[in-house]
């Protein structure tokens, strides 16, 4: 079947579309790691929050995409509070403390979501639901929209970091926090901004994905694993690397499904991550450590 050009094209498109959204989730995770030096295990919960924002919109009779702006506004405030009250206190703590803390945060978020929404599977159909056919090639419309929007947001994020004052501030703090403070960059505000922007972008990624999948609270762990894998492949702290890492994960999944079987896709993705950790732990764009 893989010799059928239409089938191969369809598989690669599937992988690219999935990978595009993974890329956005990985970019936001890598920014948090690169700037705050925080292993944020609660990152997966942000995706789930986004998914359930879409479900909430649907339950109120709206198209799930309409949840993007209100969710961004409300969650910005909540994420800022989260940073000020909790995250700010742990970013200078040892890694193990950060890991335990953010796992606790992930568990608490999932429990809260389960309390509100229970474990019943939900869907968030939108005006984009359905597929389009290019000849014999099937393309999922919600996935295409998610990919395009994620690409736009990802590019916007990159442009913000590269050209805006606050983006420069974030990069400066990521490179050397104390030096940045010496030149009057407000470190705490910069870190808070990085955390909030990353969190909001991840929540928006969740909203974008919702029309294409079935939503359950267990989504947190799935996307957490994917994001970590993409970040490791693409180099921790490297935005472009995270984008490429996400695409690579998406394509690996799609080709595994086609060549080996759906039940092997996680195994192959994580085997790839292990290979990187063993052979090139610095990722695609990192420099090998001096031995």
């Amino acid at each position: 079947m893989l010799t059928d050009p239409a089938y191969l094209t369809e598989i690669l498109i599937n992988g690219l579309l999935a990978g595009g959204v993974y890329a956005l989730i990985a970019v936001t995770m890598t920014v948090v790691f690169g700037v705050l030096k925080l292993f944020n295990f609660a990152h997966g919960a942000f995706v789930t929050v986004g998914l359930y924002c879409a479900v909430l919109a649907t339950s109120l009779g709206y198209d799930p995409y309409l949840a993007i702006v209100p969710a961004a506004l409300v969650m910005s405030a909540m994420l800022w509070l989260l940073y000020v009250l909790l995250i700010d206190r742990i970013i200078s703590r040892p890694t193990l403390t950060q890991v335990i803390f953010t796992i606790g945060l992930l568990t608490a978020a999932d429990a809260l979501i389960e309390m509100i929404w229970r474990t019943d599977p939900r869907v968030a159909p939108s005006i984009t639901s359905g597929a389009l056919f290019i000849g014999d090639i099937l393309v999922s419309k919600p996935r295409l929209v998610a990919f395009l929007a994620a690409a736009l947001i990802g590019f916007g994020f990159w442009a913000f970091l590269k050209w805006s004052w606050w983006g420069l501030a974030i990069r400066a703090v990521a490179q050397h926090g104390q030096a940045a403070q010496l030149i009057a960059i407000p470190r705490r505000a910069t870190l808070a901004l990085a955390f909030v922007l990353s969190g909001v972008a991840t929540i928006v990624a969740g909203i974008l994905m919702a029309p294409a999948i079935t939503v359950t609270p267990s989504a947190s762990y799935v996307y957490l694993g994917i994001a970590f894998g993409a970040v490791v492949i693409g180099t921790k702290g490297n935005v472009l690397g995270a984008m490429l890492g996400g695409i690579i994960v998406g394509l690996t999944e799609a080709l595994t499904i086609a060549l080996v079987g759906d039940e092997w896709k996680d195994a192959f993705v994580f085997a790839l991550v292990l290979v990187f950790l063993l052979v090139r732990p610095e990722g695609l764009f990192g420099r090998p450590a001096n031995v």
């Binding site: 079947m1 499904i257 086609a258 079987g261």
Partner: peptide, 20 residues
């Protein structure tokens, strides 16, 4: 036989195969 990973959120790969 077409096994799939339990809990998968994306069945597009399966569907591509079943279409053919």
């Amino acid at each position: 036989e077409v096994p799939y990973k339990f809990g998968t959120s994306d069945m597009s790969g399966l569907i591509s195969r079943l279409r053919r």
